Amino acid sequence: MKNPYARVYGLTGVMGSGKSTAAKLLAEAGVIVLDADSIARDVIDPQSDSYADIKLKLIAAFEPLSTEPLFRADGSLVRAALAKVAFADSAKTKKLGEIMHPHIQAEFSRRVAAIPAGRRIVYDVPLLFEGRLHEQVKKTIVVYAPEEICVARAVARAAGQGQKLTADEARARLGQQISIEKKRELADYVIDNSGDLAALRAQVTGLCQKLE
């Protein structure tokens, strides 16, 4: 089977590194950006063909560990409840990936096939290295910032959304992934987002000139 990732640059980072902002800037520069989180939301939508299978498996794997239902009465997923139990340790995070990834991959493949040849495509995926997708994509891009900056940004973002996330909780979530320092070492391209938005925009512009 043809590898759908062969046309794609993999974009990753960690919570608070600014990956989503970089992806937005890439899209503004004319790059087609496919978002793994967005695809994940689509496949768990009640109208999706994947919904019934995913819901059944999520309830079986995680609802016994949750203090609240994982799905609302209208069928929608309570994402905060799932995140609380699924990211509690690496084994649970791996189980979540095993449930979600086949459906995400199938939808990703469908979307890539619909994009004309010659277009630059970036796949924004949090667990690029953890899921070993870096072995399949054309090149890898990491959006980097030191961990403590990422932690501070994540806490501030959660507060801005009316959610409570402590620095220790943010560090615990980051601890379930390959560290940002290791990801920087593994990357083909690094976007340093330690500074402000103007600095990030300049680096994204420079990267776009390098992408085939």
Rank of each mutant, 00 (worst) to 15 (best):
M1Q: 11
K2I: 12
N3W: 05
Y5W: 12
R7Q: 08
V8S: 07
G10C: 06
T12G: 03
G13T: 02
G18W: 08
T21Y: 13
A22C: 09
A23H: 11
L26Y: 10
A27L: 06
E28N: 05
A29R: 15
G30V: 10
V31Q: 07
I32W: 02
I32V: 12
V33E: 07
D35T: 12
D37P: 07
S38D: 12
A40N: 03
R41V: 05
P46A: 05
P46C: 11
S48N: 01
S48I: 03
D49L: 13
S50P: 05
Y51V: 02
A52F: 02
D53E: 14
K55P: 08
K55R: 15
K55Y: 03
L58Y: 07
L58N: 00
I59H: 00
A61Y: 06
E63Q: 09
P64I: 03
L65F: 02
E68S: 06
L70V: 00
L70M: 00
D74K: 00
G75M: 06
L77K: 01
R79C: 00
A80E: 09
A80L: 02
A81F: 00
L82T: 01
A86V: 03
A88V: 04
T93C: 10
K95F: 08
K95G: 09
L96K: 00
E98R: 05
E98I: 07
I99F: 04
M100K: 04
H101C: 10
H101L: 10
H101K: 07
H103A: 15
H103R: 10
F108C: 01
F108S: 06
S109Y: 10
S109A: 15
R110I: 09
R111A: 15
V112A: 01
A114D: 15
G118F: 07
R119A: 13
V125S: 04
L128N: 08
L128K: 01
L128S: 08
F129R: 01
E130C: 02
L133Y: 14
K139A: 14
I141F: 13
I141E: 11
V142W: 00
V142S: 05
V142N: 01
P146I: 09
E148C: 09
E148N: 14
I149F: 09
C150F: 10
V151S: 14
A154P: 13
A154Y: 11
V155R: 13
A156T: 12
A156W: 13
A158E: 15
Q161M: 08
Q161E: 14
Q161C: 00
Q163L: 15
D168S: 12
D168A: 12
A170K: 09
R173E: 06
Q176P: 04
S179Y: 08
K183F: 05
E185Q: 13
E185K: 12
E185C: 11
A187V: 04
D188L: 08
V190H: 10
V190W: 11
D192C: 03
L197F: 06
L197H: 03
R201F: 06
R201W: 07
Q203P: 07
V204H: 02
T205E: 09
L207I: 14
K210S: 07
L211E: 02
